[in-house]
Amino acid sequence: MKEKRYIMMVGAVDDQLSQVRASLTETMNQKNVITQWILSRDGIDAIGKVDNQKFDAMIIDAEAPRVLNADFLNGIGRHRNTNDCNIFVMSTQDQEQLHPNLQKYAFLQKPLQTEILLQGLSEALSQNLKPSMVEKFSVDVRVINALIKATMMVCQNYGLDQVDMEKPTPKLLELPWQGQSGAYLDIRSQVFSGGLILSFEKNVFLKIVSEMLGEPFTEIKPEISDAIGEISNIILGNAKSEFTSYGVEMTLPKILSLGQTIDQPAGSVSMLITFGTPMGKFFLEIIAHPRK
């Protein structure tokens, strides 16, 4: 017999959310789970609907009408039917610009990265399923978002004024990491176990190092090759406040050599997020280990 999971969407459903809805339905069907979507046009409509149904996940468009209504802001996380609900907030604004009551939830920047929302919803809806139904991998969307946010902020602070994130794509672990300068660290949270590779193409790395050290560099020389470790530490330091609340543990960054591959447990999978700049590209590779 199939289990059922209820999801509320507060705000309009555009093409991206329709894609997430279709993909999630297919993903959860493979786990013998039916997904039921309830649409709410605004915050007040949502409050009325949670009186009659318990929800497993909720997506809130921060720009939807009456989301800033006091009844919605104060009640949505405390209501008996949503107090243990997994809530995702999406907005064109930065997370710090949102109402404080919305900042505590998993945040997704618009335009939406559909793969990240899909992973977060799949993880949320897989909680408390029978063991045979539980997904093999667990990715904490909050950790990924914190990494993306901190990486973009640090790179912009060091001279990369224009940074555009491309669509995340799967990556074969047998392939070497991207770029000419990279670092790896193990990362673990309450629901995530895996690794992270941060890497840069030559010109992007040289631009950041030149800004950091206050002198121009045109080649990756031995005296600056280990700066990738310092860049990684700065990024992780900026994400530390969010990581701490998620129970994240990390190792120190390990500098990678060109063409190096990282041994991972059998069955691990990898997602590559590419960032474009006028100087070239840099990359976040997030590796998920299978659950034991």
Rank of each mutant, 00 (worst) to 15 (best):
Q97I: 00
E115C: 00
V50R: 06
F72I: 13
R80H: 11
D56L: 03
N52D: 13
Q113C: 01
D84R: 14
Q53W: 02
K130M: 04
F72R: 14
K49E: 09
D42T: 08
M90I: 06
L68G: 13
I60V: 15
P65R: 03
M58P: 04
M90P: 00
S91H: 13
D61A: 10
H99C: 12
T114K: 15
L98S: 09
N128T: 07
V89A: 10
S91I: 09
S132A: 02
L129Q: 04
F72V: 13
G43P: 09
C85V: 06
A57K: 01
D51N: 13
Y105L: 04
Q119R: 14
V50C: 04
A64C: 13
L125N: 01
M90R: 15
F107M: 08
G120M: 02
L108Y: 07
L121M: 02
L117S: 06
L117C: 05
L102Y: 07
Q127G: 00
L73G: 13
D45H: 10
E63H: 15
L39G: 02
L39A: 11
R80W: 01
M58A: 05
L98P: 06
D45I: 00
A124W: 03
A106R: 10
Q113R: 14
N52G: 09
R80G: 01
L121W: 04
E115F: 01
L117D: 07
L121Q: 02
T82C: 07
A70D: 14
I59T: 00
G120Q: 01
L118M: 06
G120E: 02
R80E: 11
L98W: 06
N83V: 01
G43Q: 12
K49T: 08
D71V: 15
F88Y: 13
V89I: 12
L121G: 03
G75R: 12
D56H: 04
M58N: 00
L118Q: 07
G77K: 05
G120N: 03
L68T: 14
Q95N: 10
G77W: 11
N83F: 11
C85Q: 11
N128C: 04
N128W: 05
I59H: 03
I76T: 03
I60G: 01
L112I: 10
D51V: 08
Q103M: 01
S40N: 04
P100M: 10
Q97S: 09
I59Q: 03
Q97E: 15
L39H: 11
Q119W: 03
F72G: 12
H99D: 14
N101S: 13
N69V: 09
A57P: 02
L118S: 10
I87M: 07
D51Q: 15
K104N: 10
N128F: 08
D84K: 15
G43D: 07
F107V: 03
I87F: 04
R41E: 10
Q97M: 11
N83A: 08
Q93L: 13
Q109L: 06
I38A: 08
N86S: 15
A46G: 07
A46Y: 08
K49V: 05
I59W: 00
N81A: 04
N128Q: 09
N74K: 15
G43N: 09
V67E: 09
D71A: 15
D94F: 09
E63W: 00
N128M: 02
L129K: 05
Q127E: 08
Q119N: 10
T114F: 00
N69Q: 14
D45Y: 03
Q93V: 01
